[in-house]
């Protein structure tokens, strides 16, 4: 065949290739990789336990929790598929079964209400809040305790959020309110801490340590250990805190918020 219009042919081919690339990228979204891996792990476990038959065809789907009575939507379980699968005993994230999940059924609470992060997102970096446009990176391990006081009174947390309560004690013991103020109490020689936990990542000056990996929790911890670490002129005294104390205080400081929690989710008020 003789091609008369090479330029049309090339432009057409170019468009076609681009179209193909676009379709390819859109169908291979990051979260699918995690779902595939999860179903494969499930399948090989079933085989190891004596199951038979071929693997079911994969049905990719975005798992989405819409918390009743609020406009919170979260899709963390799109990747964190094993959060309620205590039987399997998967050991790696995002497949680990959640410690203690059933006190807070995920369909009522979702995940970001305790962990922060970006519920709507379906990529790791976005969901875990490592991007500029999401200022609340996820809280990990013990630091999650910073969220409990949104909905609980102290006495309900003695067993499950010990560090938070310890932080509160230390806060009084070290007389932080000798300089700071909190909900109208204390002195005005230092920044008010009433909504310290609401501050956005970019409101903190990380000085020479600036890196997208560092979160508010890192800032607070490092600042409590050495108040001059970011700003050598800081007038906050170095209290010589141990790591454990600094961690507890960090959790407490992060828990200071003025944001409203949806009424229906608060412990005593939950219908």
């Amino acid at each position: 065949m003789r091609i008369k219009n090479w330029d049309f042919a090339l432009l057409g081919l170019g468009s076609l290739v681009l179209f193909g690339l676009t379709v390819g990228r859109d169908t291979n979204r990051e979260w699918k990789k995690y779902q595939k891996r999860y179903y494969q792990m499930e399948y090989s476990q079933a085989m190891a336990r004596g199951g038979k038959g071929p693997m079911e065809p994969l049905r990719y789907k975005i798992n989405q929790i819409m918390i009743p009575g609020t406009d919170i939507v979260d899709r963390c379980t799109t990747c964190h598929l094993g959060f309620d699968n205590t039987e399997a005993g998967f050991e790696d994230n995002p497949y680990k079964a959640h410690p203690n999940p059933y006190q807070h059924p995920p369909e009522d609470f979702g995940c970001p209400i305790c962990h922060g992060g970006q519920g709507l997102a379906t990529t790791v970096a976005d969901a875990h809040g490592e991007r500029e446009n999401w200022q609340y990176p996820i809280l990990k391990s013990d630091y999650v305790q910073a969220s409990c006081s949104k909905c609980h009174q102290d006495q309900e947390l003695i067993k499950d959020a010990p560090l938070l309560l310890k932080g509160k004690e230390l806060f009084a013991q070290y007389e932080c309110l000798g300089c700071h103020s909190l909900r109208g109490e204390g002195e005005k020689d230092a920044p008010d801490l009433t909504n310290e936990g609401d501050k956005k990542r970019h409101e903190f000056d990380f000085g020479k340590y600036d890196s997208p990996k560092l979160t508010q929790a890192d800032w607070q911890f490092m600042h409590l250990k050495d108040p001059q670490v970011f700003n050598p002129d800081s007038e906050m005294p170095n209290l010589g805190l141990s790591d454990e104390e600094a961690k507890a205080l960090t959790i407490y400081v992060l828990s200071l918020t003025e944001k409203e929690t949806p009424e229906t989710l608060i412990y005593a008020k939950k219908p």
Binding site: R75, L120, A121, D126
Partner: peptide, 10 residues
């Protein structure tokens, strides 16, 4: 905008 980015095809 987030939905467009994260869940809606193209």
């Amino acid at each position: 905008m987030k939905d467009l980015e994260f869940v809606i095809s193209y």
